[in-house]
Amino acid sequence: MTNDMTNETSPELRRRNVRTAWLLAAFSCFMLLSSVPFWKGLANMIAASGL
């Protein structure tokens, strides 16, 4: 980023930042997608089993 509001960072660091960000974004998407079937199954299990 080079503009008058933000300090510049080196291209390597910028690439590393973007990579880490995508990794975390993928993880939050995984949480979103898994929430429906996974928690539904767990709720069913809790309801059905005596645990």
Partner: peptide, 14 residues
């Protein structure tokens, strides 16, 4: 936040 907010989003989407 990134662990639980997507689950809320899933819930309200359902």
């Amino acid at each position: 936040l990134i662990l639980v907010v997507p689950v809320l989003a899933g819930g309200v989407t359902m």
